[in-house]
């Protein structure tokens, strides 16, 4: 099984045939990824919510901060960008090629509309963290009941 290597943690000897099959699997998986929210897309995200804020963190290793484009429209967050391929040394032979390269785009549906001007993003060690505050118009309002 190809997968045993992942968690079984053995030290596999190289086998070109197996590597090729593995590469094919990875490529199939890469192209099957969708861009819809809550579908397994790229980048993978973790989302945390509170009553008036959402934190979206995305794994984007090897992507330069200026190669990521974040946009928000109402309650939809879009993370777009590209990952450049590493330059291969001259005459190099590839044994494993699992890391994807190229353009990506992902839309995420947020639980509420967002105060676009106050969205904050940071990027550290290949993890993008976006903090999105709830729009003022979308906040629950407490209504005082006047007693006669």
């Amino acid at each position: 099984m190809l997968r045993t290597q992942r968690f079984g943690f053995s030290a596999p000897a190289w086998s070109p045939a197996r590597d090729f099959t593995r590469m094919q699997h990875e490529m199939d998986r890469f192209f099957q990824r969708g861009n819809d929210s809550y579908a397994p897309g790229f980048p993978p995200v973790n989302v945390f919510t509170s009553e008036d804020q959402v934190i979206v963190s995305a794994e984007l290793p090897g992507v330069a901060a200026d190669a990521v484009d974040i946009s928000v429209l109402d309650d939809t967050l879009t993370i777009k960008g590209a990952r450049a391929a590493d330059e291969k040394p001259e005459g190099a032979v590839a044994h494993h090629q699992e890391r994807g390269t190229g353009d990506f785009s992902r839309k995420i549906q947020l639980p509420f509309r967002v105060e676009v001007g106050s969205v904050d993003a940071s990027f550290e060690n290949g993890v993008l963290e976006i903090t999105l505050p709830r729009a003022e118009v979308d906040r629950p309002r407490r209504i005082a009941v006047k007693s006669a």
Binding site: Q5, R6, F7, F9, E26, D86, K88, P89, E90, G91, A92, V93, A94, H95, H96, Q97, E98, R99, G100
Partner: peptide
């Protein structure tokens, strides 16, 4: 298991 690229010269 992290995704890897392995090349050889």
């Amino acid at each position: 298991a992290p995704r890897v690229d392995v090349t050889e010269t």
